[in-house]
Nucleic acid binder design. Structure first.
Lengths: 125, 125
DNA sequence: CTAAAACCTGACGTTAACGTCAGAGGCAAG
DNA sequence: CTTGCCTCTGACGTTAACGTCAGGTTTTAG
């Protein structure tokens, strides 16, 4: 029961998705272009999204912040959509996890060096 | 006694700096262009560096990894060189520290989400 | 002395995730 | 009906930290 597809779900337009997720309209179109977000179209051609598009876009932002490319996210989307993974996808998940962990460690080191300087310059005006 | 300027310090060329710090020669030239690294010149025009150029370049890499731009690093260089700071520099240091800390938190959140999926896909093949 | 390796100065190319602009429809309110 | 806001499709622009290539000089190993 991953996807609750109620019959009368209210579809929303791109502007509402963008505002809801805190990104630009351009960004949402870009995600579609990258195969991350599929939209229905109204008779006149306007994009129509289900409401879970908003948390999805937030999730994309989170992954972008973690350094994943849109290509990589697209490759891993099935892991979230279906919960099913093959060996290659599991390997990619672990690789990204390890890369992010390494990045966290690097940032922590940088943070320590900055704090070091801050402490020195504060106690030694 | 920050800078030990021994009379007969062996100067090294750009290739040795690059290899020692694990970056490309191009990168070292770029740092000079950005005002991060000053080099003497041999009579024939080749760049000559003191050996502490290597840890300096490593430090730049660390700051780049932390998301600082070369401009920002250049603005904060006096904090490391002289240990002296003005109010503006201290504010910048704190701003960067906070930004990096926020980034660490974001990465940790992303890490948790990835681990969540990894756990699920591992226990539910 | 010579050939390879290293260095020099431009200067254009790359990448990712959008920003921005142009020109043209579409949609609810008054 | 028209005003104003939203949306559409292209398509070029942006940014940072380099990569890469061209064409020429310098240093070093043998």
């Amino acid at each position: 029961m991953t996807v609750g597809q109620a019959a009368g779900e209210r579809l929303i337009r791109i502007g509402e998705v963008a505002r809801g997720a805190g990104v630009s309209v351009r960004a949402v179109r870009y995600y579609e272009q990258q195969g991350l977000l599929i939209a229905e179209r109204s008779p006149s051609g306007q994009r129509l999204y289900r409401q879970d598009a908003i948390p999805r876009v937030r999730f994309f932002q989170q992954m972008f912040a973690a350094g994943l490319t849109s290509r990589r996210i697209a490759e891993l989307l099935p892991c979230w959509n279906s919960g099913h993974t093959d060996a290659e996808q599991r390997a990619m998940l672990r690789a990204e996890r390890d890369r992010i962990q390494a990045k966290v460690d690097d940032l922590q080191d940088a943070l320590d060096r900055l704090d070091e300087v801050i402490t020195i310059t504060d106690t030694h005006p």
